[in-house]
Design a protein around this nucleic acid. Sequence first.
DNA 1: GGGTTAAACTAACGGTTGGTAGTTGGTAAG
DNA 2: CTTACCAACTACCAACCGTTAGTTTAACCC
Lengths: 216, 216
Amino acid sequence: MGRIAGSSGARTAASIRRAGLRLIYRRGFEAMSLRELAAEVGIQAASLYNHIRTKQDLLFDLIREHMERLLAHTDLALAAAPAGAEDRLRAFVASHVTYHLERKHEVFVANFELRALDPRHFAAIVALRRAYEEKLVAVLDLGVARGEFRIGDTRITAYAILAMLTGACTWYKPEGRLTKQEVVALHTGLVMHGCLGLAPTEGRSGTGLAALSRDS
Amino acid sequence: MGRIAGSSGARTAASIRRAGLRLIYRRGFEAMSLRELAAEVGIQAASLYNHIRTKQDLLFDLIREHMERLLAHTDLALAAAPAGAEDRLRAFVASHVTYHLERKHEVFVANFELRALDPRHFAAIVALRRAYEEKLVAVLDLGVARGEFRIGDTRITAYAILAMLTGACTWYKPEGRLTKQEVVALHTGLVMHGCLGLAPTEGRSGTGLAALSRDS
DNA sequence: GGGTTAAACTAACGGTTGGTAGTTGGTAAG
DNA sequence: CTTACCAACTACCAACCGTTAGTTTAACCC
C-alpha cells in the first residue's frame, strides 16, 4: 500500500500532536509507545516518522510550544494592565488561571515530563520557565518597592503562588461545581490577601482580623 | 552461585525500597527498569523477586507507606494543637511543609506516579489522599463556622493551599538560601493571610490595605 | 498528463522489558 | 550437626521498544 486517498500532511501532523499530548498526559511519556500513538492517529508506527524526527523531539516540541504560547499570553495580559502592582498581580493571576484551566493536558505534560527530556532540551525549557517566573517576580518586586505588598521573599513567594495556581488544573473539570470565573476569583482572593497581608510573624497572633488591623 | 555471605533479607529489602524511591523520583516509574534498580542495589534483576511481588507492587507499597506516615504525622500535629481554627491551620501548615521538605522523593512519587498504578491500587491511594485533604477541609470549615476565616469554598481553598505547600519541595534544597524554618514561616504567612482576608471580590479595589479595612 | 514529491505501507533490526524456572550455597533453628 | 529455608545466582522467555529501509501510491506542479 502507498499513500492513502485524502490524506494530508498538515492534518496528520496536527493529529499526532493532539493524540500525543493526550496520551502523554494520560499514560506518561515513557509509558506511551509510538505504536500506541500511531494507532490513535490511525496510521502505522513507522509512518509517524514522516512527521516527527524522534519521540524525544515530539515531547520537546509540545512543551516548547506550550511555554511560548504561555509567555505570549501573559505578555498580552500584563501589557493591558495598569501600572499599579496590585492591578498587575490581579492581571497575572487571572491570566495564569484562565489559561491553565483551558490547557490541562499541556500544563501537566510541561510540568511533569521535564525529566524525560535530554539535557539539551531540558535546559531550553528551564530557561523558558525561568523567564515566566521572572514576570511574576517582577510584579511582586514592584509591589514591594511601592510598599503595596508585605511579603518576605519575592522569588519564593512567586514559586508558591505559581504552584497554587497551577494546581487548580489538576482537579478542575469544566462540568464541575464551580465555573472558571469562580475558580479565578477564589484564587485571586487567596493570592491578593496573601500578598497584601502582614509579613509572616514568628510568634502567635490573636484573631485574624485583629492581626490584620495591627498592621494597618 | 547461591546465597552470598553476609546477606540479609531485611537489609536487601530496605535497600530496594530506598533505591527504588530514588530511581523512580529521578527517572520515573516507567523509565526505571528492574535491571537498573537491581544494579543500584547490587544484585541481579531476578533476585529482586525474592523481595517484591511485582514492579507495580513496589510502587504501590512505596506510595501507600508514604501516605500512611503522612496521615499519622498530621494527626499527631493536630492533636497537639489548640482548639482554635487559626492555631489548627497554623499547625497543619507547619506540619505539612516540614514533613514534605524532608521527604522530597516520596512526595514526588506519591503525587506524580499515581497514573502508573493499576485501577485497584489507584483507588486505594486516592482514598488516602482524600482522607488527608479532609483534615485540612475540616480545619477550614471550623474557621468559617467560628467566623475566623473569610474564604469562598473550603474544599477548593484546601486544594489550593495543598498545591502551594507541596510545591515547596520541588525547588527546596537543604543547602539553599533559605532554612527550613524560613520556608515554613513564609508559607504560613501566605496561607494565614489568604484565609483570614476578605472573600474574593469581583470588582476592582483600591490599595490592598484599604481593601482589607473595608471589611473589618 | 508526466514527473516529482508527500505520505502512507510492510518488514525487520538490535536491544530491552518484566517476569519465570530451576539451581546453589549461606544461615539459623532444632 | 543436620535439615529446612532463605536469598542469591544463571538462563531464558515472549513481548515490546524506537527506529530504519525499502516500496507503493495519491496529490500536486508545470
